[in-house]
Write a protein that binds this DNA or RNA. Structure first.
Length: 265
DNA sequence: AATTCCTCCTGATAGC
DNA sequence: TGCTATCAGGAGGAAT
């Protein structure tokens, strides 16, 4: 479910309510979400500590403790975070719970269990090990960066945009929005795209992320000409009011308007 | 080295 | 109504 803006919302939630309190207990309800960590290592590094800072890279969330270690979180398709009183109000599908001394808990829920939790001492090496690409919302990521990332790539544009090793944070839905706003067919070849087209894609990416965060990722509050408002099986193109088409691109369902999204360079 | 396909897991919904 | 099939905002690993 969550792409870059949704993970940013989760980061803000953690930053606003879960910092500077002592973690009394670390409870792992399902060890299958742990990646490179055990319940014991999480407890040893976090119990008795305070979370003091947060960081996000693409769809990854990092929560820093005063032990110097970072709790790492990825939300997969259905992962989420809640801050509530527990165990009284512990939500369904709770996979991990970090209980504070005030009775509130930071809770990681995930019905499908595609998400993961771990621990690292160094964010850079964590990201490098997975060969993750740069986060487009971080300082220094500009049009030139984007051009260089798309240069010398092959395959379909949709697949490249969703490839986290190229750009970290764009998923299926935001890729569709970017392609619609740029008027590009999802199966456009990424090779030999003109510079102006690549720049337009970059502009769309930045616009879409900012617009989504401006409405707290509530798509219903996006302007009516945004694709995300109409992206469903009965949806109509906001420009021509004709039914959208679907296709499989890189294994994912892609929605597009056949009139307004053409293969071109 | 870069891409594509299969797979993990569970709930919601479409279709019969 | 009740059952079955399909699909879902992700990504690692195998296969190509």
């Amino acid at each position: 479910m969550p792409e870059l803006p949704e993970v940013e919302m989760r980061r803000r939630l953690v930053a606003s309510c879960a910092l500077h309190q002592r973690v009394e207990r670390v409870i792992i309800r399902d060890t299958s979400i742990l990646e490179g960590a055990t319940p014991r290592t999480l407890q040893r590094n976090l119990a008795g500590r305070e979370f003091v800072k947060t960081h996000r890279h693409g769809k990854w969330l990092f929560i820093g403790a005063d032990s110097g270690r970072w709790l790492t979180m990825h939300f997969g398709m259905t992962g989420d975070i809640e801050y509530c009183e527990a165990p009284i109000n512990e939500p369904p599908y709770t996979r991990a719970r970090f209980g504070f001394e005030n009775g509130q808990s930071l809770i990681f829920t995930d019905p499908r269990k595609f998400g993961e939790i771990g621990i690292t001492s160094d964010i850079s090496s964590f990201l490098n090990k997975r060969k993750w690409g740069p986060d487009p919302t971080h300082p220094g990521f500009d049009r030139v960066t984007f051009r260089d990332l798309l240069r010398n790539r092959t395959g379909l544009l949709k697949g490249v945009l969703m490839n986290q090793r190229v750009i970290a944070g764009v998923g299926n839905l935001y890729a569709d929005e970017m392609l619609f706003q740029t008027g590009l067919h999802p199966e456009t070849s990424v090779g030999n795209l003109r510079r102006a087209t690549i720049d337009a894609l970059y502009d769309a990416m930045m616009t879409v992320f900012a617009a989504s965060l401006a409405v707290d990722t509530d798509y219903e509050r996006l302007p009516g000409n945004f694709f995300l408002r109409h992206r469903n099986y009965s949806g109509l193109c906001p420009k021509c009011r004709r039914p959208l088409s679907t296709a499989q691109a890189s294994g994912r369902t892609t929605y597009y308007c056949p009139r307004h999204q053409r293969r071109r360079s």
